[in-house]
Amino acid sequence: MTGETYAMAVRNFEALIAQPPSGRHTTPATLIRAAGLPPSSGYRHVATLEAEGLLRRDRDGTYLPGLSAVRTGLRAFGFGAIAPVAEPIITQLRQATRHTAFLGICDGAGLFVGPYSVGPQTRHHQMQPRYRLEPGSDLVAEKPLETRLRYDDAGIARRVAGIVAPLIVRGEETIVLGLLLDGHRSDASALGAPLLEACRQLHIQTGSPS
């Protein structure tokens, strides 16, 4: 096999793995089409990625990144230890608050959004992979921070309200748990307590210092 064969294999992998976050695909055919792959090999590749846990389907059959993908992503940040507990923590937090719950990584003024679960109260907002924090947003342990998360949508500057609490600080990076807020209906003061409780549970289970 030549170098081009391997490069093509990586490009095919990349094309398929990039689809679930960017679109809603409920059949292998639409996923393969969106990835620009030929059906002959596409079905085999999708089956492989599903078997490897890098893709999965939810209850409606919609393709999502698999749990192995989330673990690999968090390992790439060096935060792999929290990967096994991320799903139960985020799901419970979303279920209790009905707001979109997420795990994020703050790097200075930027916030990379990792795994998340969309709550009915804030499902109108399309989760972005990256936000900018408002200037002066200082993260303090045990203190949820209500802030504006800024992002660009087709060249238009937009913002959404959020509340974040720091979990683990390592060098320049801080891993946070957060909730998106709905300006009309969310009561940030009531959401701080479950957010801190989720942080506390995560510390207990991973043995990580706050």
Binding site: D58, E87, G114, R123, M127, R185
Partner: peptide
């Protein structure tokens, strides 16, 4: 693992409901 692998962490645990006519919650 490199920067491209980090993007794998940006993942929904459940798919957001498709947009349908009518608000999911009451109009505020």
């Amino acid at each position: 693992l490199g920067p491209q692998a980090r993007d794998l962490a940006h993942a929904a645990f459940e798919a957001p409901a498709p947009t349908r006519p009518g608000p999911m919650v009451a109009d505020p």
